[in-house]
Nucleic acid binder design. Structure first.
Lengths: 231, 231
DNA sequence: AACCGAATATGATATATGTCATAAATACAG
DNA sequence: CTGTATTTATGACATATATCATATTCGGTT
């Protein structure tokens, strides 16, 4: 059972988007007044691709997967999102539609703030606007990198890279819980689930990792890095 | 021989970035004072991936290719850029590096404006900041779409989509000059140049297009659309 | 404990696509 | 005009990767 510690006010929230530090007390109060919290159980959908993007959504706790629904029902997982993350997607500023879906992996708490309020603060606070641009840019930059990974590396390189992503960016440890199924790992690296299984097996045989369906331990980070870079 | 009509002032420039319409006369003057024009011959590099991104670069005339230099010297052409386009890339706001390269296809005129000036105007003019966010977002959105295209469609679909891109977004005609070589078309659709040649041949046999090495005419747009969508 | 559906694992096979070799066409410099 | 380099075109072959079939393990439920 989860006890979602409700946030009393944005002003004292330690789990909000880093860019909120650029706001004045009055601006924070404005945001706070237009704030709605919600929590999600594992596998519940937080954002649905294509739906109108009226709210900026901030993850307060938990882990979620960000994915695009592609052709013939095939998904592409772009990344995982954790607390302090703004979820919205570039569609917001173009056609007011979410361009990707987000689903909870663990229990997730999220904060919804209407985009009109966000836009208002953007236009009154240049520092916040700059922070917003940085956030957008950082995500775009990572996507540029991901395109290269997906198009130019072979399966082994893509999977190695995914494992390093979990280790470095999400769990900050060589040993971590594997929160995605083999199927989802495939959706993340653009390959069939059978190929994921096979290559994980190969990595185990070569003593690069130690894996169970729900856990991974990186034994030889050097080798994994080489595989990831050499494609 | 080209006669590059020099721009006398930003205020009366008809070939600049649309977002400049949000600037006041004083702001335009500031921009105008910190402006440098340059022109490029076909195949010359306008932006080099990885180099420090000190300037925002605006295309005034001509056509250029935007591409990432990937692993093992393999390029990925992201899109073509024409006049009124801001070239900079998200790296500018993250690590001050260009995350892609840009090379002239035709003769190109460009305007260089130091990013300090742009940032100054962003922070003093909310409308301009919003326009900037829109530009960034639009590019990110198209990249999201491109990832799906490249990862989930087969060769025929990707090539069909590229041909439609030229027709719809660049030349606005069913008949257009093919400004890229077969090799470059491959870099754009992530396939070998031989495959490009073969599939263009198939499209010709099926009377979908009529092609020479330097020109394309779309004969059956419907079929091309279906191929592009069905992957 | 026994069952059931789902996820994982493994092998056989099919297919898309790249690579290599070579010929034909084209652009181009002298 | 002529020879040379580059691009385009085509065929034979190699390989990465998906698909399909089937076994096995696992998590949860009665």
């Amino acid at each position: 059972m989860y006890t979602d510690n409700k946030i009393t006010s944005c002003e004292f929230c330690s789990r909000c988007w880093a860019n909120f530090k650029n706001l004045s007390s009055e601006e924070l109060e404005l945001v706070n007044k237009n704030r709605y919290e919600a929590s999600f159980k594992p596998s519940e959908i937080i954002i649905k691709q294509g739906s109108p993007s009226s709210n900026a959504i901030f993850l307060l706790s938990g882990l979620a997967k960000v994915y695009m629904e592609g052709y013939a029902g095939k998904n592409l997982i772009l990344n995982l999102a954790e607390s302090k993350t703004l979820l919205a997607g570039p569609g917001v500023h173009v056609n007011s539609r979410y361009c990707y879906s987000v689903a909870a992996i663990t229990h997730v708490q999220a904060c919804f703030i209407n985009f009109d309020v966000i836009r208002q603060v953007i236009s009154s606070n240049p520092g916040f606007a700059a922070g917003f641009i940085e956030d957008l840019s950082g995500k775009a930059l990572r996507l540029h990198q991901k395109v290269l990974n997906l198009t130019q590396k072979k399966m082994h390189g893509r999977l190695a890279e995914a494992l390093l992503y979990f280790s470095d960016s999400i769990f900050h440890s060589d040993e971590f819980e594997m929160v995605l199924s083999r199927q989802e790992l495939g959706e993340m690296t653009n390959m069939a689930k059978e190929s994921v299984v096979r290559i994980i097996g190969e990595f185990e045989n070569e003593n690069i990792i130690q894996a169970t369906p729900r856990s991974v331990k990186i034994l030889d980070r050097e080798k994994l890095l080489v595989i990831s870079e050499k494609g």
